[in-house]
Design a protein around this nucleic acid. Structure first.
Length: 539
RNA sequence: GAACCCGUAGCUCAGCUGGUAGAGCAACGGCCUUUUAAGCCGUGGGUCGCAGGUUCGAAUCCUGCCGGGUUCACCA
């Protein structure tokens, strides 16, 4: 790796900046080396067992008797590695816990077995909570019943120079937990070390995605990768991040959706394609929004949105069963039940039930008047679609806690969806609303190239009127449609929001390992205001 | 982008109608060979987010800035 110039913000300051605990740990490095102990040894440490495995296997009362009752030749010797998480030193013997990926196991170490000098001068004085060690020894059960490893060797594998914000625990209750959100998100590695439930959230998230992938693969759909850098962004209404390609001397956009590329693949003859990937939207941040977020998009040829409803129901029910062993998922102080089938309600019916007003067929002016009567602010720039969208998210969405399929959206809101087969002014589109938020969005895809061009032109008109989020005309996509796309059903699922529900987390930051944060220290890189940065970046 | 709340030791927090900082855990020294929020005795550690202002005196009051949280707006 190159030597790169540190910015002032990140250059570590010498001694004075360090806390007393950090200074002491750095001094210990010197003392360790003086004794011939490398605090960062190169060689591998062979691990023969993990904490959870030891606890599980030794639970057997036949082998789980107190030390001394298992003859030496019958002992189970193990080699474990992990981070020291607690220490109790009692003169000539000590206990400590180490934590590996699976959990914690207690270690018992005695001076008369490890050597007086090593025990007194190294283990007691130079090993700290947070250090990573390897331990060899045999498994036994202590007088108080805790399954532990009786150490015959303790080896330092990596010295920790910073103290851990360690919570205390008694009778299952956690004291002084590390819970400052800013610190937890910025120092996610520390969060993961000291907060086991955080590790569990991300294991569940991984299992969720694995389940979805297996579900789609089992049906023969092809997982693909499409461009993140796009010359024209499309597939959703949102403001993009702009970047710059130096060699081509042109701006590029980070994708806001995969949709238009995946449909090109359907034109190309694949009959089912999906992508689970990051999209990027240059919008505000909140506990439901991160600038980069994960989306599943799926397109299946020769299907329509009715078929897709069934698929989504089955897929999310499968996810719930996989993670919870039940279709019922705890979210906050209630349960969400993904058991099929879910209620289905038409967009305008839902609005009518929520507001007591019939809005289907009303003109823009009539909608604006009704909206104002209902206390919803209407800007002059808002079209009919925008007003309906506003009413929907005010009156319908928050009330949908259990998974609900809302179908048949107004045409103006859906420039990529096919016109409804029988209802004028509507499109064959549905959303799954769950826990008061949109979770999925799906249509019978618009495959009429002439109609698609008209929809794009309408978007262009909105854009000309100042709607920054209106879609751009993508001539290449239109060309692809002109070659002919089979009737196709498409689906988008917000993976982060699904993860929030499935892991019972209130903020999207709790299901994204490294959520976006403002820089810690004052000055962001100069010229951050411009989006046409073309400085050479050394790499 | 707006409103409200928050920022004190490594962590969790107290102190805030002004008088130059405290607790528990963590750390350091000592005792302790089955402890587990180990225990007992002793010790150190903070330019109270940053910068200004008011005042004899500011962690405390005022202003601005930085960062975070929540709600709203935009959106998924």
């Amino acid at each position: 790796m190159n030597e790169s110039p540190h910015s002032d913000a990140y250059r570590p300051e010498p001694e004075q900046e360090l806390s007393d605990q950090e200074r002491r740990r750095r001094e210990e490095l010197v003392l360790l080396r003086a004794r011939g102990i490398d605090p960062y040894p190169a060689e591998a440490f062979e691990v023969s067992a993990h904490a959870a495995e030891i606890l599980a296997r030794y639970r057997d009362p036949e082998t789980g008797d107190a030390e001394g009752q298992v003859p030496p030749e019958a002992r189970w010797y193990v080699s474990v590695a992990g981070r020291i998480m607690s220490q109790r030193i009692m003169g000539k013997a000590m206990f400590f816990h180490i934590q590996d990926e699976t959990g914690r196991i207690q270690i018992y170490a005695r001076r008369d077995e490890l050597g007086a000098e090593f025990y007194d001068e190294v283990l007691k004085k130079l090993f700290d909570i947070g250090d990573i060690v390897g331990v060899r020894g045999w498994v036994f059960r202590t007088r108080t019943g805790e399954i532990s490893v009786h150490a015959t060797e303790v080896k330092l594998l990596a010295k920790a120079l910073r103290p851990l914000p360690l919570p205390k625990e008694k009778d299952g209750k956690i004291y002084h937990a590390f819970r400052d959100k800013e610190q937890r998100y910025r120092l996610r590695y520390v969060d993961l070390i000291v907060n086991p439930h955080v590790r569990e959230v991300f294991r569940k998230r991984a299992r969720m995605i694995r389940t979805i992938r297996d579900f789609l693969d089992a049906r023969g759909y092809l997982e693909v990768e499409t461009p993140v850098l796009q010359p024209i962004y499309g597939g959703a209404t949102a403001r993009p991040f702009v970047t710059y390609h130096n060699a081509l001397d042109m701006p590029l956009y980070l994708r806001i959706a995969d949709e238009l590329y995946l449909k090109r693949l359907i034109v190309g003859g694949f009959e089912g394609v999906y992508e689970i990937a990051k999209d990027f939207r240059n919008e505000g941040m909140s506990r439901f929004h991160n600038p980069e977020f994960t989306m599943l998009e799926l397109y299946v040829a020769y299907k329509d949105y009715y078929w897709m409803m069934g698929l989504v129901e089955e897929m999310l029910e499968t996810v719930a069963l996989s993670l919870h062993g039940s279709t019922r998922v705890p979210v906050g102080d209630r349960w969400i039940d993904f058991r099929r089938p879910w209620p289905r309600v038409e967009f305008f019916t839902a609005l009518r039930e929520a507001t007591g007003r019939e809005l289907y067929g009303l003109s823009r002016e009539e909608l604006a008047r009704v909206a104002r009567e209902l206390g919803v602010q209407v800007e002059p720039s808002m079209g009919a679609g925008k007003i309906l969208d506003e009413l929907f998210s005010t009156f319908v969405e928050p009330a949908c806690i259990q998974p609900t399929i809302v179908m048949d959206y107004p045409l103006e809101l859906s420039p990529l969806a096919k016109r409804h087969r029988s209802k004028p002014g509507l499109v064959e589109r549905f959303e799954v609303i769950c826990n008061g938020k949109e979770l999925c969005n799906a249509f019978s895809e618009l495959n009429d190239p002439i109609d698609q061009r008209e929809r794009f032109l309408e978007q262009a008109r909105l854009r000309a009127q100042g709607d920054e989020e209106a879609m751009q005309i993508d001539e290449d996509f239109l060309r692809a449609l002109e070659y002919g796309m089979p009737p196709t059903a498409g689906l988008g699922v917000g993976i982060d929001r699904l993860a929030m529900i499935m892991t019972n987390q209130e903020s999207i930051r709790d299901v994204i390992l490294f959520p976006h944060m403002k820089p810690e220290s004052a000055s962001p890189p100069a010229s951050a205001s411009g989006q046409q940065q073309d400085q050479e970046v050394p790499c």
